[in-house]
Structures are given as C-alpha cells and as structure tokens.
C-alpha cells in the first residue's frame, strides 16, 4: 500500500451546468498485490480534453482499460451520462473510439482495407479523404506492413476523421509521429473537444493544448491550463 497519495481531478460542477459524460467513483486498481490507485473520483464533461498522467507503472493504461470495460481487476463504479455503466454499455460502446497501444492495423491489408473494416459505414471517397488528411495520399493501396511505424500509426489515426464518435480514448497517440504530425493532431483533438466531444489521452509529449490532467501516483499536480 505504498501508493496511497493519489490525486483526483477537480470534481467541481461544470460552468455550463452540464451533466458529466463519464464519471468514476471510488476506483481502485490492484495489480500483483500492489494498489496502483484507490479512491479515485472524477467527472469528465463534454468538451474536456483529459490527460491521464503519471510516471511509468502508475496505472495509466490500467485506468484506460478499466474505463473501456476490458479490465476485471478493479473496484468502484463507472457512470456514463449519469447512469451506471453496466446498463449503458451498448450506448457507451457505440459512442466510443479507442486507439490503443496496439493499433489493430493488419499488415497484410492495405491502408484503405484496414479503414474499411474499422469504419464500415464510410464511403471509399471518405476513406481516401481521411488518408489524405493524415498524409498518406498515394499510400492507400500499399499493404501496411510495407509502411513505416509512423505511417502505420497514421493509418489508425485516420479513424479520427471517419467515425463520428463523441468519446475518444487515445493511448499514446503521438508515438512515432513527427513534429508537424503532432501539432496537426493537437488541432484535431482541440476541434473535437470544441465540437462537444470528450477526449481522454495519455502521452509523454508536452501538449500545447488546454488540458485537464488526471495525475496518478507521483506528487500533486492539478493544472487546468486554459
């Protein structure tokens, strides 16, 4: 029980009087008999960009998996639009876009084929436009194992332009992306939040984006930049 000094996001009510989109009460995550965090409460609102921060091993990815409902090793409650998550799981999943540490991009499919399965409702011209936006014009028909690590990640990132989902959960989205790419992505994230979306991300990059920080482990640091 060495990591008791958890710190939570400020749970003060939203200035616009909105209900929180995603809330957690009393989250506790234990891994290999070590408590990563406990008594974690937070309310996340539409329009927020939330960065889950903390040193390596603080439980950032574990928290994301708990939010996604992919993890069983936790206690506490999750709420989606104020309702218990267990009752809202279908609604939650249909509004979720998750970009994991592993991308889910198949090497033996082309960029276009990969996106066609991620976003089955997207028309081919929309897919081409999205690939152009992430700088992959001309690479649409190449098998993705022939692409570089950064380009493969860009294929996955093209989903941000295709799916119209309010909740984005992005695990290290900027890994292997070059500088210009990162600043473009920051703009996409800001635009999504301004449009009423909620973005939850982890990154070790210094973001030039107004974010709320959810600090796990480590010392107190609550910095709602604006």
């Amino acid at each position: 029980m060495s990591r008791q000094n958890f710190h939570n996001l400020d749970a003060s009510p939203n200035a616009n009087g909105q209900l929180p989109m995603l809330s957690a009460r009393g989250l506790l995550c234990e891994r290999d008999e070590r408590v990563l965090f406990c008594q974690l409460d937070f309310d996340l609102f539409a329009g927020d960009i939330v960065r889950i921060a903390g040193p390596n091993g603080a439980g950032k990815s574990s928290l994301m998996r708990i939010l996604l409902g992919l993890s069983a090793g936790f206690e506490g409650q999750l709420f989606w639009h104020g309702q218990p998550m267990a009752e809202q799981i279908h609604d939650f999943r249909s509004q979720l876009l998750y970009l994991g540490h592993q991308l889910g991009v198949k090497g033996s499919l082309s960029a276009e084929e990969n996106l066609a399965w991620f976003c089955p409702n997207a028309r081919p011209d929309e897919i081409y436009a999205a690939l152009q936006k992430v700088g992959l014009k001309g690479y649409e028909d190449l098998l993705t194992h022939a692409l570089s690590a950064g380009q493969q990640r860009r294929v996955a990132l093209a989903r941000l332009f295709l799916a119209d989902k309010p909740l984005w959960i992005l695990d290290e989205p900027f890994t292997a992306i070059d500088k210009e790419g990162v600043s473009e992505l920051e703009q996409v994230v800001i635009k999504h939040a301004q449009g009423g979306g909620l973005v939850i991300l982890t990154t070790h990059h210094d973001l030039r984006v107004p974010v709320k920080t959810l600090m796990l482990g480590g010392q107190e640091s609550e910095m709602p930049l604006c």
Binding site: G69, L70, G100, H101, Q102, K106
Partner: peptide
C-alpha cells in the same frame, strides 16, 4: 491469435 497480437481483438470486443 493474429487479432490478439495486433490489437484488433480489443477493437472487436469494444464494438457495440
């Protein structure tokens, strides 16, 4: 196996 290793299985389980 392949879908587990590259993360697509996660995506499938997160489908509505």
């Amino acid at each position: 196996k392949g879908d587990y290793e590259d993360g697509s299985l996660e995506q499938m389980l997160l489908m509505p």
